[in-house]
């Protein structure tokens, strides 16, 4: 009794039926664009003085349990990084002569990896504001969003028996009224309803508004002082298909924890493959039919004749 080489290949061929489609990404994934009224933030590291008013304001506005872990005596709001108690943080970066503060929070990607990972759209993009929002009631706590976020933003309450995902939602819980054109030319909510970090910032190092306005403002600043900013570039304009939080810096972005990812949205490959295989659910159904047909044809001989004879001789 032998298993021929041919039959092994047949197994593999059968197995490959449904995955083969992945090799031919027939239809390239559509590039997503930000909603027209997408709300975003613009952080300018050259303006930030590291006062951390935004850290305290965020913690308070989001009713977060203070994270005191960063300093041994536990007296301060001292997170080391974004975590289950921290949605916004100011970090410090020193590189030779250069130094800079940098603010970290959700980037509100135009094509977010976390939302692509989420099974029941617990994490999803608000159709109007583009804010990546989180509804705990649809969350099973699988933490796939944490794996899928290129910026390592969604955090999990590992310290709780009944945990949730924690991430910046641009203070959407504070919003009651519609955003209007503000006196400073940016889209504004009434005071107390906008992102707490932006409202409290004493130097307007971080401001909010519509993404378009902020992008224009960023380019205005670059044009105004051409040598001030790193590569004269706005981080988040194109990175990973664009983010709604934009960064300007005098230092290389990679040093600030903003890696150079390129322009392709992070879920692109996974989606091209997944949709290639499951488009319309045709391939799985066809495979099911084929399998059933072969089982029907082979079942009898498989279970009686051949099988018993193979027993012992």
């Amino acid at each position: 009794m032998k298993v021929s080489r041919r039959s092994v290949l047949k197994v593999l061929a059968a197995a490959a039926v449904s995955t083969a489609a992945s090799a031919v990404p027939a239809i390239a994934r559509e590039r997503k664009v930000a909603p027209a009224k997408a709300i975003g933030m613009l952080y300018d590291s050259t303006r930030c003085i590291g006062c951390k008013a935004c850290v305290a304001a965020c913690s308070e506005a989001n009713h977060l349990e203070p994270d005191r872990s960063g300093i041994a005596d536990g007296l301060h709001l001292a997170p080391v990084d974004l975590n289950g108690r921290t949605k916004n943080i100011i970090k410090f970066c020193q590189d030779g002569e250069q130094q800079s503060f940098v603010k970290s929070q959700c980037m509100h990607c135009i094509d977010p990896g976390c939302a692509s990972a989420c099974m029941l759209h617990s994490l999803h993009k608000n159709e109007r504001t583009g804010v990546v929002e989180y509804d705990p009631q649809w969350c099973v706590g699988c933490r796939y969003c944490q794996m899928a976020c290129p910026f390592n933003v969604p955090k999990f309450e590992f310290h709780k028996a009944l945990p949730k995902i924690v991430k910046c939602e641009l203070c959407r819980h504070r919003v009651q009224d519609a955003a209007v054109a503000g006196a400073d030319g940016f889209t504004r909510y009434p005071r107390g309803q906008g992102p707490a970090c932006c409202e409290v910032c004493p130097r307007s190092a971080v401001i909010y508004g519509s993404r378009e306005e902020l992008l224009a403002e960023a380019h205005r600043r670059i044009a105004e002082s051409p040598n001030k900013y790193y590569q004269g570039r706005v981080y988040g304009e194109k990175e990973l298909g664009g983010t709604q939080v934009l960064y300007l810096s005098h230092m290389p972005f990679a040093k600030l924890g903003l890696p150079e990812f390129g322009d392709k949205p992070s879920p692109d490959v996974a989606y091209t493959v997944q949709e290639g295989i499951y488009r319309g659910f045709i391939a799985p159904l066809a495979l099911y039919g084929a399998l059933a047909a072969m089982v029907m044809k082979n079942k009898k001989s498989a279970e009686s004749g051949d099988g018993a004879k193979g027993g012992r001789s």
Binding site: A115, S116, A117, C118, M119, L120, H121, P136, Q137, W138, C139, V140, G141, C142, R143, Y144, F156, E157, L162, P163, K164, A270, Y271, Q274, E275, Y278
Partner: peptide, 24 residues
């Protein structure tokens, strides 16, 4: 699963299904 008690919703609420490979 952090929020295992909500797992039952995954097969039930099919109209909320996403394209996540993990859902599959």
């Amino acid at each position: 699963l952090g929020r295992f008690w909500d797992l039952w919703k995954v097969p039930i609420f099919f109209w909320r299904w996403s394209h996540s490979p993990q859902l599959e």
